[in-house]
């Protein structure tokens, strides 16, 4: 392990130690704040209970990511190809980010029901924006001298897109995707809070109401792990695809 990794691990251990110690010394009731040891233990022994919920939330996030990719990529390319379109759409894009997802969640449940669709849609709303914006910025950052070269080669737009713009934008696209997958959990969980029959958000609300606080924390732990896993997966994919030094 490198030095930075070691110091990070040491810091986490220290904080967890303080938490554990404080809970035991002041005898804080478990339903208010369980010690980290119990949270970890619950996360493991309750895995048979948590896993099906985690699978549902994971599916919602993954579908949200796929939906976001399928819409954000064409939109960013279209806005790049037609600057008029970018001018027309960017106020709406920004406005869509100004509306809190929390405000939309109850409506989406009315429209799309208690099933998985409303959560996928919530995740989509959240992931869509960072991917679109970062991909568009990446495409626009292409060096004009390279553009001139392709213009002089008489290259049609979609060939230039495939050979020049897209690879050029890939690092920024991946940056946006990484942000997207790490915040996607927010959308899915909020959707589940508002109305659902399964999922980690549903489990948290249920356990919270029954004062099963360790289970709430265990669900949060699983959620964080899933976010980290997706983050790492995107990072690995990026390393596989971007093999050149820019």
């Amino acid at each position: 392990m490198n030095r930075a990794g070691f110091s990070a691990a040491a810091l986490v251990c220290l904080l967890l130690g303080i938490w554990e110690g404080a809970v035991r010394i002041w005898e804080i009731p478990v339903f208010i704040l369980p010690p980290p040891s119990q949270i970890g233990w619950t996360a493991i022994v309750k895995a048979p209970l948590i896993l099906p919920h985690a699978a549902v939330t994971g599916a919602e996030i993954c579908l949200g990511v796929l939906l976001a990719l399928a819409t954000a990529v064409p939109l960013a390319v279209a806005m790049f190809a037609k600057p008029m379109l970018e001018k027309a759409l960017s106020p709406f894009l920004v406005a869509s980010q100004a509306i809190p997802v929390f405000a939309l969640a109850p409506l989406l449940v009315i429209w799309l029901g208690y099933g998985i669709a409303s959560k996928v849609f919530m995740a989509w709303i959240i992931i869509f924006f960072p991917i679109t914006v970062s991909l568009l910025q990446g495409l626009k950052s292409c060096d004009p001298e390279y553009r001139t070269l392709f213009t002089l080669m008489g290259s049609p737009f979609f060939k230039t897109l495939a050979l020049l713009y897209w690879p050029w934008a890939l690092p920024q696209f991946f940056a946006g995707l990484r942000v997207g997958v790490s915040v996607a959990t927010i959308g899915a969980v909020i959707g589940e809070w508002v109305g659902a029959q399964q999922g980690l958000g549903f489990l948290m609300i249920q356990s919270n109401a029954r004062l099963q606080t360790p289970l709430v924390f265990a669900a949060i732990l699983w959620l964080a792990a899933m976010g980290l896993f997706l983050w790492g997966l995107v990072g690995m994919l990026e390393k596989q695809i971007i093999t050149w030094k820019s």
């Binding site: 001298e145 390279y146 070269l149 002089l152 690879p167």
Partner: peptide, 10 residues
């Protein structure tokens, strides 16, 4: 057209 930068795609 040839430029002072090689403009090769990495």
């Amino acid at each position: 057209y040839m430029h002072q930068k090689d403009l090769l795609l990495p």
